[in-house]
């Protein structure tokens, strides 16, 4: 039996090491390239080490408003996650645990809107933002994004799994509907909230088109827009881009994982769900 478990452990380690090896190649290449001068980046196939590692890319990176871009991205992601989660989970709770008129129709209309590509919405959105003086502001960046149909959909899918008995028990105890939402449904949904937080942050973090349209001045750029402004067409500063992307990815990955662990362990400690 013991031997069996060890075998399982080892085979899992081997399996995931292999998978991870495959997945990390592009990232590894990015890290290595960030220590190369741009002439060396494409000269040979995936050379695994720089001939002479240089720090110039990192030094140059901090001559750009990199830190400001980073902050802007954090504000964008933070605002989007915070407001988006709140809006989506609240609405999802209504859609999953109540019966009201036109429920399915409203839900379908909302999800249907997600089917339309962003490209046809951009011009009217831009005109709206301009009319309301929200161009080049954080509000203009975040507000049109937060009513996210996919976030609502995912939250609804999760909240449907919450047992009605728990909610009804609370009702019997005299809790208001609002209390039921924030005292019972929300805590139970912690893993879902963590997942959504991660997904929303990724979306905000990677979004290029929207911040590009909304933000006008260099100081208001998010990281994606700022970094991509470093690659011109004829003389792409790839090394600089690699360095910037590397610094952009690392802390976020660590932060997300810690957060997810925290949320999940919080859940098991509370052991609400039977």
């Amino acid at each position: 039996m013991k031997k069996n478990i060890n075998l399982k452990k080892i085979s899992l380690i081997v399996f995931f090491s292999f998978v991870c090896f495959l997945f990390i190649i592009p990232f590894y290449w990015m890290v290595v390239s960030s220590f190369k001068p741009s002439g060396e980046i494409f000269t040979s196939q995936l050379n695994l080490f720089p001939k002479e590692p240089i720090l110039a890319n990192y030094i140059n990176l901090f001559k750009t408003p990199f830190v400001k871009w980073y902050l802007n991205s954090l504000i964008f992601a933070g605002g989007y996650v915070f407001l988006g989660l709140f809006l989506c989970s609240l609405a999802a709770f209504a859609f999953s645990k109540y019966d009201f008129k036109y429920k399915n129709i409203i839900f379908i209309v909302i999800v249907a809107a997600q089917m339309l590509p962003i490209h046809i919405q951009i011009i009217p959105l831009f005109i709206m933002l301009n009319k309301t003086s929200l161009v080049n502001t954080y509000t203009g960046l975040v507000l049109p994004m937060i009513a996210n149909p996919m976030g609502l959909f995912f939250a609804r899918q999760y909240m449907i799994g919450i047992e009605d008995d728990i909610l009804n028990a609370a009702r019997v105890d005299g809790a208001s509907e609002w209390q039921i939402f924030y005292k019972i449904a929300l805590p139970i949904s912690r893993p879902m909230l963590a997942a959504l937080a991660i997904l929303f942050s990724i979306e905000a973090w990677n979004n290029l088109l929207w911040p590009l349209i909304v933000m006008r001045t260099e100081k208001m750029f998010t990281l994606t827009v700022g970094l991509s402004s470093l690659i011109g067409q004829y003389r792409p500063q790839y090394g600089l881009l690699m360095a910037g992307s590397f610094l952009a990815v690392l802390p976020i990955v660590l932060f997300f994982l810690k957060m997810q662990e925290h949320f999940i362990s919080g859940l098991t400690a509370g052991s609400i769900k039977g």
């Binding site: 951009i122 011009i123 831009f126 005109i127 301009n130 161009v135 290029l208 088109l209 590009l212 349209i213 006008r216 827009v225 991509s228 402004s229 470093l230 690659i231 011109g232 067409q233």
Partner: peptide, 20 residues
């Protein structure tokens, strides 16, 4: 400076809407 495609997109939107 913007990347090639992004700059032209942004410019097109500005030209079409007459703003920004």
């Amino acid at each position: 400076t913007y990347p090639y495609d992004q700059m032209h997109d942004k410019l097109n939107i500005a030209l079409q809407t007459g703003i920004g």
